[in-house]
Design a binder for these strands. Structure first.
Lengths: 177, 177
DNA sequence: GTTGACATGTAACAAGTTACATGATTGA
DNA sequence: TCAATCATGTAACTTGTTACATGTCAAC
């Protein structure tokens, strides 16, 4: 279960409330993991029961700020260093790039242009983020990686859209319109 | 639910048994989607009940070969062209790259070297696949994209391993050994 | 004959989503 | 005071995993 370690990692960077974690999942961690509050709150309770996190502050509106305990830090390191990563993938975007090849040229071009728009939008956001970060910040390296991958994706999509592609002599058996 | 459309896409390329689909999920679709036979068989039944696939051959060992029906092809195209992609991510590898920055330099180097080994191994497999494919084959473009992304990842990981990194002056609050 | 790959299924459990539900505080 | 945001939780459902269970066929 990676949700647990995603939460531990976010709390290691910065103690947070469940509500703040939910936002951080969609900001700093958006390209790596997603979780909604209905998953986060029960998991925080379990982590607290297991002694991996603790409430370090209570603020207005019944808010509870959690931080890692020593054993939480140990568990995070153990997971990162000792546990074999799960490399299995489930990525709808990648699936669509793969299956897009089955479409006839007109549909494929429309679909890939939509993807390209999305990549360009995401690239702008990463650039905005980059300009705010200090260059020494560890997180800056991740932003840089994201930008490099986006550049590769954008170039590939542009190539797919330009060329009629190998499906140009479409045979009518594909999922054409 | 993308499993449904992943299956439709695989069957559009090549009619298959459930057993063959399970293998193809871990071969051609490995970088985009994963599914095990215990998920595939029930979904094939549902797809057949919905009239999106049909049994086109029965072979030895009670095997059933499925293929798309006309409405299966329509549904696949509709999903690809009309439905808004779910861009939310859940990628343990990316999460680990992100959280790896929290480790002290020694641990981080070990972890990133392990990742680099994995990328290089996967790159070799892609190259082997590439040498087998005809250049016109639509699937060749996907293999090419995979190789380009791997090259970016490998370069980034090599940089992270070479430099002691911004965490060189580790402050003892991270998940150090 | 027995091992290994082919082939299909179900059951119990874990993980994740969507909808429901409530309340506090801030600023206009 | 009213709307938006902050803040936390639960319930019902869907999706995905692991383990259980069975049987066929080919090659050695």
């Amino acid at each position: 279960m990676s949700l647990r370690h995603a939460i531990l990692g976010l709390l290691e960077r910065q103690p947070s409330t469940g509500y703040e974690l939910a936002r951080r999942f969609d900001l700093s961690l958006a390209t790596a993991w997603h979780a909604s509050h209905s998953q986060i709150y029960p998991e925080l309770s379990k982590l607290e029961a297991a002694g991996l996190v603790e409430v370090v502050a209570r603020g207005a509106r019944q808010s509870k700020t959690y931080a890692l305990t020593e054993s939480g830090r140990d568990e995070l390191r153990r997971w990162l260093v000792e546990e074999t990563p799960d490399r299995s993938q489930r990525n709808e975007g990648a699936l669509r790039l793969f299956l897009g090849q089955l479409l006839d040229p007109g549909d494929r071009q429309a679909v890939f242009e939509r993807d390209l728009d999305y990549i360009e939008e995401q690239t702008e956001q990463l650039r905005a983020l980059q300009s705010v970060l200090e260059p020494g910040e560890p997180f800056a390296a991740q932003v840089d990686l994201g930008l490099r991958i986006n550049a590769v994706l954008a170039a590939w999509l542009a190539e797919q859209v330009e060329q009629p592609g190998p499906d140009g002599e479409h045979d009518g058996r594909g999922p054409a319109r």
